[in-house]
Design a protein around this nucleic acid. Structure first.
Lengths: 226, 226
DNA sequence: ACGTAAACGGAACTGCGGATTCCGTTTAAG
DNA sequence: CTTAAACGGAATCCGCAGTTCCGTTTACGT
C-alpha cells in the first residue's frame, strides 16, 4: 500500500489535532464543508444498508456528489468506512453512558438494546467491522466493562435472567440485523416483533441455558474476522 | 438465455422420468456416477456456507473435481443450485411429516425448529432461495398449512405462546443462521445457545406481543427477493 | 487386449462490476 | 478579477468468477 496514512489526511480529524508543525492546516471552503457533511451522512446510511460491499458510486449518488469528491476527502474506500465506523462507535459510547446515567436498573439492558437498534448505523457498526486490522476487537474489549455494568444492574433488579451475558446482547443485535435485512428497512415492524420475542427469552422464569456463552474475547475475535 | 432447459438435461431427474420418447437415456459411466454424488454433496455444503455467492471453483475443489466436470452435469451455476435447493426442500418436507407423525404435541414446534437447524443445507435453503423466479414462494405457500398444523398442535398443548405464527418460526431460522455465520460453523454452541434463548421467548407466560406477524404471503415474497 | 465414446482436468477466455485516476470546468474568496 | 480549491463524471484498470475448449485419461463392450 503506497499511500499516505488515512488518519493524517482525514479532514474530520483536523479540528481535533491541535498542532501539526510541518503541514499547514487551512479550513475547508464553505461548499467543501457542506459536501463533506453530505458524504458522511450518505456513507453512514449506505454502509448501514449494504455493509462494506456498498459501492463508492452508490454513496456518491446518495450524497449528490461526484465520485471524485469522495476521493478528494478520503483517499480510499477503507478510509471513508473507517470514518463512519469511528463515528458509530462514539455513538454507542454515548448510548451506553446515557443508559447508565438515566435509565432505571430494571430496564437498563432492554433499553440499551432498543436504543442501539433504533439507530441503524450504530448496530451495523457494532456487528460488521472494517474488513481489516483489529481495531474493532480493541474497541469492544474496552466497551465490555460498561456493558457488563448495565447487564449486572438489570440482573440485580430481577428483570433479566441471571444466566445471560454481555456477549448474548451483541449476538442478539446481530440477529435482529439479519431479520431487518430479510423483512424491511431497519427498524421495521417485523424486526421489532422478533426483538420482542427475543427480549422475552431474556426474562427470568425460563429454564436454565445449557450452552455456555461466548467470552468477550472470542466474540470480539469473530467480529474482527468476517 | 440460449440454453436448453436445465431440468431436461439434469441427470438426477433421469431415473424419475420414466419415458422420454425421442432422447435416448443411457446410464452414466460408473466414475461419472460417483463424481455426480460428490458434486452434489460439495454443492450442498458450500452453498450452505456461502449462499449463492459460492464460486463454482470452490465447489469443484470441495468435490475434488475439475470445473469442467461440473458444467458437464449442470449447464449453469443456477442449475446446480436449483438441484441442491430441490433436494433441501424435499428434506424439509420429510422433517415436517415426521414431526407431525412421531413427535408429541407439546414439543412439535420446538422439535421442528431443532431438526431444521441441525441440517445446515436445509435451513439455508429455507431462508435463501435461488435469486430468480418465484418457485420459492410457491413452495413455502404449499408448506405453510403443514407448518400451521405443527404450530397449532403445540399451542393446544399449552407449551407455545398463542400469539406466535408460522412466519415467526421461519424468521427465527433466518436469525439463527446469521448467528452461525457470525460465530462458527453451523450447529455450533453459540448458535444453539441463542436458539435456546429465542425458544424460551416463544414459551407462554411472557407479555403479549405488540407488533403483528408477517403473513405467509408477505414472508414468502421477501424470501423470494433477496 | 483394443478401440472408442464418454469423462476428465484445468488453462484460457470473457464480461462485468467496482475502485481509482484524470482532467476540463466551475466556484468561493481575497 | 485572479486564482487556488473544488467539482463532476468519463475513462481506466483490475480482479474475479462463470463458462468454454481441447488435449488427455478412463470405463467398458467386443
Amino acid at each position: 500500500m503506497t499511500r499516505r496514512s488515512a488518519t493524517a489526511s482525514n479532514p474530520i480529524l483536523r479540528p481535533i489535532s491541535g498542532v501539526l508543525s510541518d503541514e499547514e492546516i487551512r479550513p475547508l471552503r464553505r461548499d467543501a464543508e457542506v459536501n463533506l457533511g453530505r458524504i458522511l451522512c450518505a456513507a453512514r446510511d449506505v454502509f448501514a444498508e449494504h455493509g462494506y460491499d456498498a459501492s463508492m458510486e452508490a454513496i456518491a449518488g446518495r450524497a449528490d456528489v461526484g465520485v471524485g469528491t469522495l476521493y478528494r476527502r478520503f483517499p480510499t474506500k477503507a478510509d471513508l468506512f473507517n470514518a463512519v465506523v469511528l463515528a458509530a462507535r462514539e455513538r454507542v459510547r454515548q448510548i451506553t453512558e446515557d443508559v447508565l446515567a438515566n435509565v432505571s436498573p430494571d430496564e437498563a439492558a432492554f433499553e440499551f438494546i432498543r436504543r442501539c437498534i433504533a439507530v441503524p448505523s450504530v448496530w451495523r457498526a457494532t456487528i460488521s467491522p472494517p474488513p481489516w486490522g483489529s481495531t474493532h476487537r480493541i474497541w469492544l474489549t474496552q466497551l465490555a466493562p460498561l456493558l457488563d455494568d448495565i447487564v449486572d444492574r438489570t440482573k440485580d433488579a430481577g428483570t433479566l435472567r441471571i444466566d445471560v451475558e454481555v456477549t448474548d446482547i451483541v449476538i442478539l443485535l446481530k440477529a435482529v440485523r439479519a431479520i431487518a435485512d430479510l423483512c424491511d428497512t431497519p427498524g421495521s415492524k417485523p424486526s421489532l416483533r422478533f426483538l420482542e420475542i427475543t427480549l422475552d427469552g431474556l426474562r427470568p422464569g425460563a429454564p436454565a441455558l445449557v450452552h455456555p456463552p461466548l467470552s468477550v474475547g472470542q466474540l470480539a475475535r469473530r467480529l474482527d474476522q468476517r
